[in-house]
Design a protein around this nucleic acid. Structure first.
Length: 458
RNA sequence: GGCCACGUGGCGGAGUGGUGACGCAGAGGUCUGCAAAACCUCGUACCCCGGUUCAAUUCCGGGCGUGGCCUCCA
């Protein structure tokens, strides 16, 4: 029984899809104009976990997960003007990097990755319908959604439009009939990209693409719509309004999920504050799986302090698991123990699930032989559900950060290890300890075991 | 100003009306030539003040503190 906290009803609800044979999920993806930051990745990783949970419960082929790329937007236009690079070049590049980096975080590829520029016709058609039905109007080259026509407006974010405006700091555009109305379509200047439309040459507003692409790729009412907490208003509020009005009131999504933020010290991590950590940089120093573990170390709706210490702690925990997997090669298929599945299906309580992994490790560690290998298989299966343990243990412990160009090669380490083994055999502990210290200084730890010495990187 | 979160031990972070998860770090021990790993043991944590209750960290009210959102985009 999968329970999810629905932001719209503000309660944890049993998840029941509209059609168990086709479970649909849409997650707001990045605007591809520069590198994503690790806070953006929290959403991607959290919904990757949910994707995995849904696939387990409903079947791999039964879950359709779409994550969009916003590839037309003022920030992209600005980046293009500043760098001189064509828009398509910028968006293609950053979309590719985003995908590559996410796969380093063990994220599965979404079923579909629709891009805004691939759905201009759908957006125009959706807007035409809204205008024809009186939910939207044209004004000075714009098409605007008339918020007053949608009674439920504000339900997701918990405030009606008038209240919002009372505290707003922004001037109201003169072409709006009502201050709260938002843009579906807006005119493009001559040097800006644009498409012909019934309202003149222009481009879509921010919110339109999601509604249009959801309709096209997934359907009128989807099961789950996800994104960061900051998207609740106005983005998701507007999506809800557009889609419901275009679909005779049919709700856009049955469940709305919003992940919390990463904090960097006192503040939310954000590009405008400049206090961001980029996966691009983090991946130079840390394994993607370590970063994934760090992102999942708090329940997804809670704020999470993003610190170097958190990354270190995550690495050490993964080491403990991998050590067991190295000791006892997992044997055969295994069911995923309830100690891990139950917390995950309870609104993705990842900290409790991780506690479950530790418990499985403790149990397995005390066994020997075949039972130990079966216990290891259970641990591995449980971790795999969360997107962990994707590496071979050997590779995990010998992994070198890409940034560490001066790192000792495996061959050099093996040579020193052989030297040390010879010294130990001769009871020359002074030499053997010197070699061990030298390796330790390079971040290589030696472990003397029953069957000889092994090494691993810190 | 409006709305929404959150405040747990050195750190990260669950959870619960009554037996104080889990991990990291730390301390002691077993093992080891010494280590590492593993294993065992330990840790006067629940922002403040009221209230409800036999009992509150957990429920209610207030306070303080922290964070987020408040549109087309300057």
């Amino acid at each position: 029984m999968l329970q999810l906290y629905d932001s719209l009803s503000r309660e944890k609800r049993l998840f029941v899809p509209g059609d168990p044979a086709r479970v649909t999920m849409y997650v707001c993806g990045p605007t591809v104009y520069n590198h994503a930051h690790i806070g953006n990745f929290r959403a991607a990783v959290v919904f990757d976990l949910l994707f995995r949970l849904l696939r387990r419960r409903f079947g791999e082929g039964a879950v359709v997960y779409a994550r969009n790329f916003t590839d037309i937007d003022d920030k992209i236009i600005k980046a293009s003007k500043e760098t001189g690079a064509p828009i398509a070049e910028i968006t293609t590049k950053y979309a590719r990097i985003y995908d590559e980096e996410l796969s380093a975080f063990n994220c599965l590829a979404p079923t579909a990755k629709p891009a805004a520029t691939g759905h201009i016709a759908e957006m125009i058609a959706l807007t035409e319908r809204l205008v024809a039905q009186g939910f939207a109007y044209a004004a000075k080259g714009h098409a605007l959604f008339s918020v007053g026509k949608f009674a439920d407006y504000g339900r997701l974010s918990g405030a009606d439009a008038d209240e919002r405006l009372a505290g707003a700091r922004v001037e109201i555009a003169p072409y709006k009939e009502n201050a709260a109305d938002f843009v579906l379509w807006k005119p493009s200047k001559a040097d800006e990209p644009g498409w012909e439309s019934p309202w003149g040459r222009g481009r879509p507003g921010w919110h339109l693409e999601c509604s249009a692409m959801i309709e096209k790729v997934l359907g009128e009412t989807i099961d789950i719509h996800g994104g960061g907490q900051d998207l609740k208003f106005p983005h998701h509020e507007n999506e809800i309004a557009q889609s419901a009005c275009a679909h005779s009131g049919a709700p856009l999504a049955r469940y709305w999920l919003h992940n919390g933020f990463l904090n960097m010290g006192a503040d939310k991590m954000s590009k405008s504050l400049g206090n961001v950590a980029l996966p691009r940089d983090l991946l130079k120093k840390h394994h993607g799986e370590t970063l994934r573990f760090a992102l999942l170390s708090a329940q997804y709706r809670q704020p999470l302090e993003w610190t170097d210490d958190l990354i270190e702690q995550s690495k050490k925990q993964l080491d403990r698991f991998y050590r067991l997997l190295a000791e006892a090669a997992p044997d055969g298929e295994a069911d995923i123990p309830e100690s891990v599945v139950l917390p995950l299906e309870d609104d993705m309580n990842t900290p409790e699930a991780i506690a479950g992994l530790h418990e499985l490790r403790d149990i397995a560690m005390q066994m020997e032989g075949e039972p130990k290998r079966r216990a290891a298989a259970r641990l591995k299966a449980a971790g795999a559900l969360m997107g962990f343990f994707a590496s071979a243990p050997e590779a995990w412990f010998k992994w070198t950060p890409p940034s560490d160009g001066a790192a000792l090669t495996a061959e050099a380490i093996e040579a020193m290890l052989a030297e040390r083994t010879a010294a130990r055999k001769a009871k020359d502990f002074k030499t053997s300890d010197r070699i061990r210290d030298a390796l330790a200084a390079e971040g290589v730890i030696i472990e003397d075991g029953q069957s000889g010495a092994t090494w691993r990187r810190v």
